[in-house]
Design a protein around this nucleic acid. Structure first.
Lengths: 157, 157
DNA sequence: CAAATTTTTGAACAAACTGCTCAAATTCTA
DNA sequence: TAGAATTTGAGCAGTTTGTTCAAAAATTTG
């Protein structure tokens, strides 16, 4: 499915506040309330908005390639490396790690070509000395926290 | 902050449907509308619900230890390994990977002791031959997709 | 244990919001 | 350019929301 400008604005508004009201959403996107309503419905029906709107299924938008990148970094340059990584839209998540590598990155792309390009950007960052890329071939369990919370309840009674 | 039963039910209802209406939420949780409203407000104010409710800050609930676990698995047992991993509440995410290891797991715990216990559970699973754990010391960028979506717009105009 | 404090409840109200329909206007597509 | 699809704005009835408040219930504290 291809998103137009309105869809994108709807998604961005929902990311900012998933509980936004339809009328406010319409205002923010700059369309009639009816339009906002039907766009939202369509996005939910297409399951681009999963779980009623909690998060966005990027694979449905063509982002099929997911990779985990482990970086080795000169410790002196760590802050600037983080800053540079943040600028890359394909970088969805950054953690400082101990063990193998110093920084762990979640990287997403539409295809391996785009991934390659993002990886080049990363390797060009001053202070990055080495990288290792692992491809996620299949998501067996997308991020979920519900069982943990249910467990939290039992744990303390 | 310590959550009671009502808070947990509120969070679980919001995970299921972040756009649930207050009155329906109150019904589902089994409290008065006023109570549901004030609990929701409190959770947002405490920033346990981030971004107005999109996702839950588990570190605020005491889950301070985050680790990425890479597993080597006998390919014959892959399905049953995945099934077993799913049963563990501390496992938040599972991907099949190529490259280093066959399965990648996001694991969370309140402390290293609890982590150790979860790791033991994992290693006991039939078919898991080896594991490697990387600790996430600091989250420099929590999952975000907004910049990617903004970029998506530019990309095709 | 009893008093003090906090939380929950239910009721009430006005204002706002929702889902829905519809016909006209606009935009997109073939 | 004609036909199809989408958007718009208006209207309407019904629901939901935010708010306030006092009583009841639950929790904490001395």
């Amino acid at each position: 499915m291809r998103l137009d400008d309105i869809d994108l604005k709807v998604l961005l508004a929902l990311i900012k506040d998933p509980r936004i009201q339809i009328s406010e959403l319409a205002d923010e996107v700059g369309v009639a309330r009816n339009t906002a309503q039907s766009r939202l419905r369509r996005l939910q029906r297409a399951e681009i908005l999963r779980d009623g709107g909690r998060d966005i299924d990027l694979s449905k938008l063509g982002y099929d390639v997911l990779a985990f990148v482990t970086l080795e970094v000169n410790h002196r340059d760590l802050d600037s490396v983080i800053t540079a990584l943040r600028q890359i839209p394909n970088v969805l998540e950054i953690h400082e790690t101990s063990g193998r590598g110093d920084v762990w990155v979640r990287l997403i792309a539409t295809d391996t070509h785009q991934l390659q390009s993002a990886l080049r950007q990363i390797l060009r960052i001053k202070g990055v000395t080495r990288s290792e890329t692992t491809f996620a071939l299949h998501t067996h369990l997308a991020y979920r926290a519900a069982p943990l919370l249910e467990h939290y309840a039992e744990h303390d009674h």
